[in-house]
């Protein structure tokens, strides 16, 4: 990857060359996960608070059944995608690990973090440009997306273990989660709270992406489509 330095802030003046930041793996991971998250949040919401009762012949209806089926199967896909995302760190290299490890030990990172906060509070008039994720974005993604997703996956499979029984592989792998809580109701509450964090993240993420695309002199949305970050004045 051309001129790649982690969290590198680009010079404020001029127009740097565009950089290939996202490989095909990351891009397809991004959009597929986005779809899965939408499906999971919608179906998950309805698992906890089901839609109004349907009238009709019980034997021919399967509303909750389908909701749960789509939830559980997209839960599997999301998990596979998450594993793939970790694997991509080693395959596509470059900035791919930024999502998981914010470089808090680097002066440039901290400076960028503070600068991004002030930028979002409209205290700075000229935004910085970065090769990879900006430090604030990386932190938000880690705290509001990566961690809650891990929580939903762990609690999700722990609840799955309840459904599939004590002799299933899900129980074998995730049964320990149920022993931490004793009452598995807590799993549902934690899973649901994590969902709300992910929902908040999704809104912030879309809003900030559009905003940065317009204001921050670099491409955002098209980068995730083409893989290239282009810079403007």
């Amino acid at each position: 990857m051309k001129h790649f330095i982690p969290y590198h802030q680009l010079p404020d003046e001029g127009i740097p060359d565009s950089v290939a930041v996202y490989g095909p793996g990351i891009r397809s991971w991004h959009w597929m996960s986005a779809l899965m998250v939408v499906v999971l949040c919608l179906t998950g919401y309805f698992i906890g608070v089901p839609p109004p009762s349907v009238l009709g012949d019980t034997s021919s209806l399967y509303v909750m059944g389908w909701i749960r089926f789509f939830h559980l199967s997209s839960g599997y896909l999301l998990t596979i995608l998450a594993v793939m995302r970790v694997w991509l760190i080693f395959v596509e290299k470059g900035i791919t690990y930024h999502l998981f490890v914010p470089a808090i030990w680097r002066a440039e990172w901290l400076d960028g973090f503070m600068r991004q906060i002030r930028w979002n509070l409209l205290m700075v008039s000229r935004p910085r440009r970065y090769v990879g994720l900006n430090p604030l974005a990386g932190t938000a993604m880690l705290l509001l997306f990566v961690l809650p997703t891990c929580v939903t996956i762990i609690t999700g499979f722990a609840m799955y273990a309840e459904v599939s029984g004590h002799d299933s592989w899900q129980y074998w792998l995730f049964g320990w989660v149920t022993s931490i809580f004793g009452n598995t109701m807590d799993l549902h509450v934690i899973h649901r709270l994590a969902m709300w964090l992910i929902v908040f993240f999704s809104f912030i993420h879309v809003y900030i992406s559009v905003r940065e695309d317009i204001l921050s002199r670099q491409t955002m949305i098209s980068s995730m489509l083409s893989g290239e970050r282009q810079f403007r004045r």
């Binding site: 349907v54 209806l61 399967y62 909750m64």
Partner: peptide, 10 residues
């Protein structure tokens, strides 16, 4: 069966 069908006491 009513759970799976989505038929709930409200």
């Amino acid at each position: 069966a009513h759970f799976d069908a989505g038929q709930f006491v409200e």
